[in-house]
Design a protein around this nucleic acid. Structure first.
Lengths: 162, 162
DNA sequence: CAAGATACGTCAATATGGCTGTCCCAAATG
DNA sequence: CATTTGGGACAGCCATATTGACGTATCTTG
């Protein structure tokens, strides 16, 4: 090699480990921020993920939700049954394909999601505020790079909603 | 309010949701990058987390590891027993306090951790490379802001290692 | 030194949230 | 009509977490 790499290997490794650790702890702390509230409702994180994406994209179909969550039909089935039983989620037949179920939050589902989102917003908003707007776009860009090509389209599509 | 907020509410919400979603998917994709390799060893993610932090901070004590992982002694106990049984981790009595167990990776533990870290490095390194160095520091800063004050010290201490 | 606190280990029981494999129905598609 | 697809359900399994109680060795302190 004629010129050394921009970061020598030992430095590079420290930078990578820093990212791995901050991503782990950051993710953990954000999710823990709503655990208590979820527990008072008798719900778990799996319920919240479904609630979140249904809120995000009303009339989402079951199969689209399955792709987003990357879990099996059976696992999602239990979660959706719980949510339907508590009348947090309702479904309607698809308009063009009546086999589909279009998922929506009920009034109380919307209220619960809003409550939970409020806690996420507080945390995330503080972090954004402390880091500044340029850091925020950097944060987004690095995370986009971690997402596999086959999925990035679905994630970007979410952000065109609303 | 005399002047409007920098971002009106609906815009702010989109930015927050974007962060929540990218953090979720980014974290998921990074962890999935090593699941297959872990499965061939008959290990799970919990084992990897222990392996990772012991690699990161040799002679870490059990109680320090407990604080990092934020799980119970019982949960960690099973994981450490598995790892010790496979001779991936070994322990020695603390030098000043012999009640403590100082944890270290064995040769094969180091090799396995290096193999797994290699996969994480590839992913993270690609994401860093695509986003650029400024984005990377932004990524770090936002994540630091998500970590609770009571824990940020432990995380920063990790990064002073080695 | 005796008493208490701490570090670690372990028991039993329980919950959550994943998984596989198999089978089913209704509706769309060719 | 035959096949594929969207959704659902069964049984059973596994990984990982929890709580609470209890035990033992060792350190610390009045």
């Amino acid at each position: 090699m004629l010129s050394p790499a921009a970061s020598p290997n030992y430095l590079r490794e420290a930078e990578i480990r820093r990212g791995v650790e901050l991503l782990y702890f950051g993710y953990s702390h954000l999710t823990r921020a709503i655990d208590e509230e979820l527990a008072t409702q008798g719900l778990g994180r799996a319920h919240h993920r479904a609630l979140y994406f249904i809120a995000r994209q009303p009339d989402l179909t079951v199969s689209d939700l399955l792709k987003l969550l990357a879990i099996t039909k059976q696992s999602l089935g239990r979660v959706l049954n719980d949510l339907a039983g508590r009348e947090l989620v309702e479904s309607h037949p698809g308009r063009t394909d009546r086999r589909q179920k279009m998922l929506r939050l009920t009034g109380s589902g919307l209220a619960l999601e809003a409550e939970l989102f409020g806690r996420l917003r507080t945390k995330m908003s503080d972090a954004y505020g402390n880091a500044g707007p340029r850091a925020v776009t950097g944060f987004w860009h690095v995370l986009e790079g971690l997402i596999t090509d086959s999925e990035i389209g679905r994630v970007i599509a979410l952000q065109l909603e609303r």
